[in-house]
């Protein structure tokens, strides 16, 4: 009888309807891989209760880790010293996030729109851009943008607009822009799927009513595109937040690079080695909170703009 129970338990719980599965199965890091075209499917909503459960699970795991690895996250001595560094790093990260996200969303939107244009003049260059920025690893993009981002700006603009700005700032900004472009390439696919999920017949109907192209776009296509694109967009924004950590490779002054610097000095100043864990756990928590909140906020937004019949979601 016990064996039966165990066996029973091992059989996966399938859902009565496939639209009740929340699947985020995709390429590495929650992004679609190169062979995945965005498709459309239905998804269920995770309730607030589930969110609380997950958070509880995470907290529990954290405490378990503390015990296991013999460190204390709440050591006041640690925070007296590391605190300012942590905050400065947070500040840096937040500023990068605020720089990168709007650029990537706007760029991604227009790239996605252009990608399905009738004019090959738009389609080919845009496809080139998207394939390049999707195919390259983001770290490589960051490093090389840092190394010669400066060279890519025409001399005229440099003289007129950027004369007072030190080279390092320009280079790091270029690196951040590389992250933005990388994300924009993925978002272009998301928006493209959003556009293509609006049934063409509705565009025809709008025309038949006498609406001009821009009117049809504004009142019929775009509202639906946004609603359809919100869920995968939330995912992508979480990934962008994590990508800002790549700027540590070029000493970007965000939380990972500052923490790394501090961690490097631990042995010099004779601080306990266990502080390493506390530091990285703190950084991990910071990122976790950020990504978790972004996905939750977007879930709320999604629910607010929800209209029955537009429950399709793409991967």
């Amino acid at each position: 009888m016990v064996l039966k129970e165990v066996c029973d338990a091992l059989v996966p719980q399938t859902a009565p309807f496939s639209f009740m599965i929340e699947t985020k199965a995709a390429g590495h890091g929650d992004r679609p891989g190169p062979t995945e075209r965005h498709r459309v499917r239905l998804v269920t909503r995770t309730t607030a209760l589930r969110g609380a459960e997950v958070a509880a699970g995470v907290v529990f795991t954290l405490l378990f880790f503390q015990e296991f690895l013999q460190f204390s996250l709440f050591d006041p001595y640690l925070w007296a010293i590391y605190g300012p560094i942590f905050l400065a790093g947070l500040n840096g990260t937040v500023r990068y996030i605020l720089l990168v996200i709007p650029i990537s969303v706007v760029l991604g939107f227009f790239l996605g729109w252009a990608r399905i244009s009738r004019h090959r003049t738009l389609v080919w260059p845009v496809t080139m851009f998207i394939d390049f920025f999707r195919g390259m690893p983001p770290l490589i993009l960051v490093i090389f943008a840092f190394l010669f981002g400066d060279n890519l700006i025409p001399q005229a603009i440099k003289d007129r607009l950027l004369s007072g700005i030190p080279l390092r700032v320009v280079s790091v900004t270029a690196a951040a822009l590389a992250i933005a472009f990388h994300s924009a390439a993925y978002q272009a696919e998301i928006f493209r799927a959003g556009f293509q999920s609006v049934p063409k017949g509705q565009l025809e109907a709008a025309q038949a009513l006498g609406m001009r192209s821009w009117q049809a776009m504004r009142f019929v296509v775009l509202p639906q595109t946004f609603r359809l694109s919100l869920p995968p967009l939330g995912n992508e924004l979480a990934v962008v937040i994590k990508d800002t950590s790549l700027l540590a490779a070029v000493a970007g002054g965000e939380i990972v690079s500052r923490s790394q610097n501090f961690a490097g000095t631990l042995s010099i100043f004779g601080y306990p080695v266990e502080w390493l864990f506390a530091i990285w756990t703190a950084v991990a928590i910071a990122y976790f909170v950020a990504t978790f909140s972004v996905t939750r906020i977007l879930l709320v937004l999604e629910r607010r703009f929800h209209t029955p019949g537009l429950e399709a979601v793409s991967i």
Binding site: A56, T61, A238, S245, W280
Partner: peptide
């Protein structure tokens, strides 16, 4: 729940960290 927590942590933190 432990399984959930593990996956959420992996997905919620950057690979660098």
């Amino acid at each position: 729940r432990l399984g959930d927590a593990y996956v959420e942590i992996i997905r919620g933190t950057p690979l660098f960290v």
